[in-house]
């Protein structure tokens, strides 16, 4: 697959088979196209003028997401996303989690209650927050906000969960909590995480892809990549020769 922003090619010859219900980490130096690749999967790049896939296709569960019969809102319901900076809405905790369901037309209070509880349990927030679901989401700590964003993303029960450096703005303890969360999430979702932090990739991921200048240099089980890289470039990067 090739991907361009206008005339400049951001991704080239990407071929990646993300394994089902596993955590896949995308690593690589700044500007290598990790985030772009991630955003291709739920077509978040659509609203950037001139950005398009120029060759090849992106398939989610075997379906080309650029097919004419693919509904963008349905695709994004299937592929949830968590951003680098936590971005809960200025609404209550409950409304934040229920937002995704509501925009897809769910009005039944019982269904919403259940979904909110399930999502909050999954994101390990339920015990902390169950008594103050009506409080503003902005009053939470940074780590809680990010977990709330995860809860919001998984409330619609997506198949794939994209995480764009979800821990880069968090303190170590919050990071740890989210990392613990990820391995649990992988039981139910296919998780793709972009990270700058190689230790994190080792800790949380089952597979790792190393990108450099818009190309996939190496892809394989995380252990193999980190202990026994096939490519010289990967090895240099992992040893910190460039970053």
């Amino acid at each position: 697959m090739d991907f361009c922003y206008g005339a400049s090619r951001a991704l080239e010859d990407i071929s990646l088979d993300v394994p089902y219900h596993r955590v896949t980490a995308l690593i690589g130096p700044s500007g290598c196209g990790k985030s772009t690749l991630l955003r291709c999967i739920n077509r978040m790049n659509d609203r950037v003028p001139g950005a398009r896939v120029t060759r090849g296709q992106v398939r989610v569960k075997g379906k080309n997401i650029h097919d004419a019969d693919v509904d963008l809102t349905q695709l994004r319901k299937q592929v949830g996303m968590v951003f680098q900076k936590s971005n809960p809405f200025a609404k209550s905790i409950y409304d934040n989690v229920a937002y995704g369901l509501r925009i897809h037309g769910e009005k039944n209070k019982a269904v919403l209650d259940e979904a909110v509880e399930r999502a909050l349990r999954h994101s390990a927030l339920w015990d902390e927050l169950k008594d103050r679901l009506g409080a503003s989401a902005l009053a939470l700590s940074g780590g809680q906000q990010q977990r709330l964003c995860i809860a919001r993303a998984i409330a619609t029960l997506p198949d794939v969960l994209l995480m764009d450096e979800p821990c880069s703005a968090l303190d170590p303890i919050s990071t740890l909590k989210i990392e613990e969360l990820m391995s649990q999430l992988a039981r139910e979702f296919t998780v793709i995480i972009v990270t700058h932090n190689m230790q994190q990739a080792v800790r949380v991921s089952d597979f790792t892809a190393f990108l450099h200048l818009g190309k996939i240099i190496e892809f394989g089980p995380t252990e193999d990549i980190f202990t026994n890289p096939r490519e010289k470039l990967t090895e240099d990067y992992l040893r910190g020769i460039f970053s």
């Binding site: 319901k77 900076k85 995704g100």
Partner: peptide, 27 residues
């Protein structure tokens, strides 16, 4: 209105109108 709100709403599959009236205008 913070960019993140719009991103989050879009990523959840909201249509443009939903994003505008449920997120941007309230914010």
């Amino acid at each position: 209105v913070p960019r993140g709100y719009i991103d989050a709403s879009d990523a959840l599959g909201a249509t443009k109108l939903q994003t505008v009236f449920r997120v941007i205008v309230p914010a």
